[in-house]
């Protein structure tokens, strides 16, 4: 029975696990960089910009998902919530020209209202998830499977089953539609699109939250052993409610970014199946679906890997089905490797 007599081994193991993910990321990137025909331009500035846009959406949403998964839950409604937030943003912006006098007279107010509305709606979805999971003690998988459908339906209802095109004279120059505007190159200020900076900021805050707040630590405790958490007086229900709410809010932010990514259009049928990419990113990032384990930093790397795979597959000219098979295989292999490593540890 060998026991760690100090924390060094587990510390170094964590660093090692992180390094392994970085290496995997670099390998995936190099794989496509080398194998993609030059003419397709996998490494071109334009494609890099495109990937950054995709990453911003997936990574933003994945931050919230990380919290939920650490607390032992799952949020399948993430993709639909993205769509709902996107539609809400477009809907509110679309109201502008028809709005009351005070709205038309202060155009700078519209995007702020749109963002607030989108965040409120997305937060409400998260809150409903949380309430159903906590007050009715329903299984998160089922609850969010239901709200996934409902949020999608609501998005289509609000959009009247059509794309919403806010008039370009309203949206055209608004900051909200330009969140992903390409910075000229990666080497000139501000280096990255605003939304990517926002993701980085949020990831940092979420990391600090998980490490340095009581609520963050309670999320780990609840995911690791819920009964113990109850016994020790951890406010389990409040903790769960909080992570679902936070997850909803991050999906909302992702939805607003998605709106910008589509160039200022609200499309109710977008982001279908995104929750699977997001969950895959979290799992590749080293979180356990059983709860109690996971890091935001790992999730960020997971999001990068997933996005590069998706983009690279397209650039390679793989048919849809090949992309799907490869994506699925990568997820399975990533989790298998993790399991093997954990088994050796114990």
């Amino acid at each position: 029975m060998s026991e760690p007599t100090d924390s060094a081994p587990s510390q170094s193991k964590r660093v090692l696990a992180f390094a392994a993910r970085l290496v995997a990321l670099v390998c995936v990137y190099l794989f496509f960089a080398v194998l993609t025909p030059g003419s397709k331009g996998f490494t071109s500035d334009a494609n890099t910009q495109l990937m950054l846009q995709d990453i911003a959406v997936v990574a933003m949403c994945a931050i919230g998902m990380t919290l939920v998964i650490i607390a032992g839950g799952i949020d399948l409604s993430a993709g639909s919530t993205i769509a709902l937030a996107m539609i809400t943003t477009a809907y509110v912006l679309n109201l502008g020209p028809k709005g009351a006098e005070w709205v038309r007279s202060s155009p700078h107010l519209m995007p702020i209202l749109a963002v607030l509305a989108a965040m409120t709606v997305a937060g409400t979805v998260g809150l409903i998830n949380g309430l159903l999971v906590t007050s009715l003690r329903m299984v998160p998988f089922i609850v969010t499977l239901g709200t996934m459908q409902m949020a999608r339906g609501l998005a289509k209802l609000v959009a009247n089953e059509q794309n919403i095109y806010p008039p370009s004279d309203v949206v055209g120059d608004l900051w909200i539609a330009r969140l992903l505007d390409p910075a000229r190159t990666v080497f000139t200020f501000p280096f990255l699109p605003a939304a990517v900076w926002l993701v980085i900021l949020c990831a940092l805050l979420a990391s600090l939250f998980l490490r340095y707040t009581r609520l963050g630590r309670h999320a780990f405790a609840v995911g690791s052993n819920e009964k113990t958490a109850v016994l020790c007086g951890v406010p389990v229900l409040r903790t769960k409610l909080a992570v679902y709410l936070i997850s909803g809010l991050f999906s909302g932010l992702a939805g607003i970014i998605f709106f910008a990514r589509l160039g200022g259009i609200g499309q109710p049928t977008e982001a279908i199946g995104y929750e699977l990419f997001v969950i895959a990113a979290v799992v590749i990032g080293g979180a356990s679906l059983l709860g109690g384990r996971g890091t935001v930093l790992g999730t960020m790397i997971g999001a990068l890997i997933i996005t590069i795979l998706r983009n690279g597959g397209v650039k390679m000219g793989w048919p849809q089905y090949t992309q799907e098979i490869v994506m699925g295989a990568v997820i399975v292999v990533a989790v298998a490797i993790d399991n093997l490593r954990n088994r050796r540890r114990t």
Partner: peptide, 17 residues
């Protein structure tokens, strides 16, 4: 009744951090 993924100190002070 312990949370296996958490550190020893967090388990000891769980709920009374």
């Amino acid at each position: 009744a312990l949370a296996p993924d958490l550190s020893v100190m967090e388990n000891i002070l769980l709920g009374i951090e």
